[in-house]
Amino acid sequence: MPLSLRTTLLLVGLLAAQTAAQAETVFVSLEKDNALAVVDPIAGTLLKTIPVGLRPRGLALSPDNAWLYVAASDEHTIKILDADSLEEQGLLPSGDDPETFAISPKGDRLYVSNEDDSQVTVVDIAHRNIIKQIAVGVEPEGIAASPDGKWLACASETTNMVHWIDTQSLTVIENTLVDPRPRALSFTADSQQLWATSEMAGTLMVMDTSTKKIIKTISFAIPGISSGKIQPVGIAIDPQRRKAYVALGPANRIAVVNAQTYAVENYLLVGSRVWNIAFSPDHKRLYTANGISNDISLIDLDSQTVIKSIGVGTSPWGVAVRP
């Protein structure tokens, strides 16, 4: 870390002063601990670790932040936790081996990718039942619901496609061939673009929602890091589409991309094998789950500085932030 201790302390101090009034809680799924870590990121402390089911991976908060959903992959279910008490409130059917899922903007549906069954499961949250299972390509993983509610996009890792599913009819309308082994998907806040990462080609692709075509492919290069180590996964795009942040997996970096010019502006060193990332509610900080170093990194986005890392448990997979 190029940061001196004094600078770190200073930044932490500044950050604490800035955000004292808006404490937030970070939830991290721990794939190999069968647990959920609860972190106070501002204080830099792991508050507690609670058992949450077998092989927890994807997790997300409901739009009103009242509920936390956690995919317990080896229990083939998605657990509903009360986001305050973290008590389990029920189970959602998810199809086999749920890994990642997306929540509809209204918070009424979960869209789950079932990697082993080549399908997407659509779950009605209120009724806790499956509305539909949609056949997609081989090994669907990344899944995203457009903020305008119109589209559900799902990426198949082995078919190398993004499937565009109309949320009204729940059918695949179009398919976009993308670079090999697509991983994560993220819509821009205005729903006009869909961003996708390709783990094998090491690229970030920007698709136009209206044409479903790739309008830009962005590559990454880090001096001293072999291109094979650059395996982009998680994407976070700020609401104004100024910057996008991309986790580069075993390259142990977050790439900072200018979301207007598509230029790669910076690489920030975080923990080992960084896959999934999440903004703080005010979009001033970014949290990264580092699967091999067993910690999360906290990045101050104004200064583009990694402020600290917080040990959380074995194999952090997903991260969600609650105000």
Binding site: E174, N175, L177
Partner: peptide
């Protein structure tokens, strides 16, 4: 949807 649009594939530039 119609078969035609269903089979439409978009290819990266």
């Amino acid at each position: 949807p119609s078969t035609k649009s269903f089979w439409r594939i978009i290819v990266p530039l």
